[in-house]
């Protein structure tokens, strides 16, 4: 059986923040304001919880159905503008959180992919990731906002890749 959740660093951070902010609200505005804010948070939680549960399940299925190896095979050889475009597309399609994405980058570097291609991939994964867009962003923020954000983010993997080469030289990466 699963163990009860053990509080990690980030959870403790939010606990401390909630306690400090809640204490301040209590001191400045009294218990009524604390109750009102807690009620608001509870209402939002009830709205959000079903989507979050469905979202983690979708993420689980997407990772089970799209194996890491196929992304890796797809990207290993790419270079130039074609490579960057492929890397951007692969990044947008790669499901899963940082647990899945960063080991993939290590594997790509090991397989001989260039640093620019890896930067394009990880940038696309983070700003264009379709899994997150479909599962979280559209339900929470609506199609119009998401379309505008995706359009504004489309050039970002290429810009980051262009900057990656001089930056890598400056930092002293010998690639």
């Amino acid at each position: 059986m699963p163990k009860p959740p053990r509080p990690d660093g980030m959870t403790l951070f939010f606990l401390a923040l909630a306690a400090a902010a809640g204490g301040t609200v209590y001191a400045l505005m009294g218990p009524g304001a604390v109750a009102a804010a807690a009620g608001r948070a509870g209402g939002l939680l009830l709205q959000v919880a079903p989507i979050v549960v469905a979202a983690v399940l979708i993420s689980g299925y997407a990772q089970a159905l799209i194996p890491r190896e196929s992304v890796q095979r797809w990207l290993g050889a790419g270079s130039g503008l074609r490579g960057l475009t492929l890397a951007t597309a692969a990044g947008a399609l790669t499901p899963g959180g940082p647990f899945a994405a960063f080991p993939l980058v290590v594997a790509l570097l090991g397989a001989g992919a260039s640093f620019e291609v890896c930067v394009a991939f990880i940038t696309a994964w983070s700003v264009l990731g379709l899994n997150r867009v479909i599962v979280y962003e559209i339900p929470f923020l609506g199609v119009h906002f998401v379309a505008l954000r995706l359009l504004a983010s489309l050039p970002l993997p290429f810009i980051a890749a262009l900057l990656a080469r001089p930056v890598a030289r400056w930092v002293g990466l010998n690639r």
Binding site: D8, T24, A37, A64
Partner: peptide, 22 residues
């Protein structure tokens, strides 16, 4: 995989929403 992602959220999400509301 889904459960591993959900588990840390059981505490974190309510606390984050509470912190934001305050």
């Amino acid at each position: 995989t889904g459960w591993r992602q959900l588990r840390p959220l059981l505490l974190r999400l309510p606390l984050a929403l509470l912190a934001a509301a305050f």
